[in-house]
């Protein structure tokens, strides 16, 4: 693993990306690594472009912000356009199928995150967890076991099965690409 891996999760406010960032950081800690999670938001509670950032490292993390993400996840086009500016040239862009694929040189993984959450899992609200499944399989930044444990420890008890299903659908989407 690199000394420092930077991940930015972005979408629209209310899509649960900050929770996804927290869960990703917790999974990294379960893997025995260091993790820092931070977020950026405006005064509004819903809508707009929202982002959560996670840094994972085997050593101490000093600067706590993402400067050149290795991975950018975008669930909306607005978020992608706003936050892809500093993605590393060798980085990975994971976008929802509803977004028009940009003409950029970095690796792009386009998968139906929102549609699968809505139709296969049954609730679009779990798109954030499904996206974590995609990200885990596509990057291997955290282990499948740890991300599952971290998801189940964070989500409300009555939604555990639903979230688990979303995560597994995400694993499938991340693997087939």
């Amino acid at each position: 693993m690199h000394e420092r891996v930077e991940i930015r999760l972005s979408g629209s406010g209310g899509q649960g990306l900050i929770l996804a960032g927290i869960i990703l950081a917790e999974a990294a800690i379960l893997d025995g690594k260091n993790a820092v999670q931070s977020q950026s938001y405006g005064p509004e509670a819903r809508g707009g472009a929202s982002r959560a950032e996670v840094i994972i490292s085997n050593i101490n993390i000093d600067y706590p912000k993402v400067s050149n993400p290795d991975v950018l996840l975008a669930l909306t086009e607005e978020a992608m356009l706003k936050y892809k500016y500093d993605l590393q040239q060798k980085g990975l862009l994971i976008i929802d199928s509803g977004i028009e694929k940009p003409e950029d040189s970095y690796k792009i993984l386009q998968v139906p995150i929102l549609e699968t959450a809505k139709n296969q899992v049954g609730k679009i609200i779990v798109a954030n967890i499904l996206a974590l499944g995609v990200l885990t399989m596509a990057t291997g930044i955290v282990s499948k076991e740890s991300i599952e444990k971290a998801v189940l420890e964070r989500v409300p008890k009555r939604t555990k099965e639903l979230n688990k299903k979303a995560l597994y659908e995400g694993f499938k989407l991340g693997k087939t690409q």
Binding site: I29, V36, Q37, S38, I61
Partner: peptide, 9 residues
């Protein structure tokens, strides 16, 4: 704000 809102191990 940074130290207050960041989450860390």
């Amino acid at each position: 704000e940074v130290v207050a809102h960041m989450r860390e191990k």
